[in-house]
């Protein structure tokens, strides 16, 4: 069972009929030369790589640029096409006056399973007081947060907002709030590792392919920047498989991950088991991590 915890459904045909909306998404996300694909193609690509489920992430940019890189409603539209294959997340712009209402509706009415926030693109610091009602709403519904962390390839998305250390106050203040600091917080790998090591509620994902090919880059990050056994020994409950599709693809990342020579049990946790814990579908077998 493989769960891809990090996909942006920008090019799903079911939500791409309006060219203006699609162009806005492409410009804001910084993704080009790809075209909308029907649900059959998306599922075929997942099947080919053995991915059983994918988390779909929207981004609300209402106060930043007046739109969404996929809206909560569009995520719901896609999940309804294949409810056993897609896990829809919500997003909310923290600066909109109705932020809490939007999020409540996303969880209660749209039945979305978590929250996506992008501090760099949405231009907020994770430990800002403005975020408190949003975190409390997630706790009320027991929903996890997928935070962008580290460098973003999206235009107009300064990395300073997404430095991993800004998440530490949140991890301390809300120990029951499960959060993923995506992309290993690259380039701040050591800081991300510190948070993963110390805080049971902090996770990360493997959606990094910023340089090299996937095999070379994973070797650099997982075996050189990090001690070669750190994931195996210390972080095997904290790392989740994620691609950041359509920017990076499972076709490249999965074979590279499988070449890292993790124990089969560790690889299985990374590919899906840790995602189930993050999503709240099951508790960790190690109670001190719950």
């Amino acid at each position: 069972m493989i769960i891809d915890v990090h996909t942006h459904p920008i090019f799903h045909k079911a939500i791409s009929e309006d060219k203006g909306v699609l162009d806005y998404r492409k410009q804001q996300f910084g993704i080009y030369k790809q075209s909308p694909a029907p649900i059959e193609s998306v599922l075929q690509e997942m099947d080919y790589m053995g991915v059983s489920r994918s988390i779909l992430l929207p981004i609300d940019l209402t106060t930043q640029s007046g739109g969404w890189i996929v809206s909560n409603e569009e995520v719901r539209t896609i999940t309804e096409l294949a409810p056993d294959r897609f896990i829809g997340f919500a997003s909310v712009d923290p600066y909109r006056s109705d932020a809490v209402e939007v999020l409540d509706r996303a969880f209660r009415v749209l039945d979305l399973k978590g929250l996506k926030l992008h501090p760099s693109k949405q231009k907020f610091y994770p430990n800002d007081d403005i975020m408190k009602p949003i975190y409390k709403k997630c706790l009320e519904y027991d929903k996890p947060i997928m935070f962008h962390a580290g460098m973003s390839w999206e235009p107009d998305a300064p990395a300073k907002y997404s430095h991993p250390l800004h998440f530490e106050d949140v991890a301390i203040a809300y120990p029951e709030l499960r959060m993923c600091l995506a992309h290993f917080g690259w380039p701040w790998i050591q800081e991300t590792v510190m948070l993963l090591l110390k805080y049971p509620n902090v996770f990360t994902d493997t959606s990094i392919l910023h340089m090299d090919n996937a095999l070379d880059f994973y070797k650099q990050v997982f075996k050189t920047n990090m001690g070669p056994l750190w994931i195996e020994r210390n972080l095997n409950d904290k790392v989740m498989f994620g691609t950041n599709s359509p920017r990076f693809k499972a076709k490249r990342l999965l074979p590279a991950l499988e070449a890292m020579e993790f124990r089969p049990k560790t690889l299985q946790k990374i590919l899906g088991g840790n995602a189930e814990v993050f999503l709240g579908e099951r508790r960790n077998e190690r109670p001190w991590l719950n």
Binding site: M211, D212, N213
Partner: peptide, 11 residues
Amino acid sequence: HFLPSYGATGS
């Protein structure tokens, strides 16, 4: 490497 004209890494 990363290809700005695609917004994706070519490999």
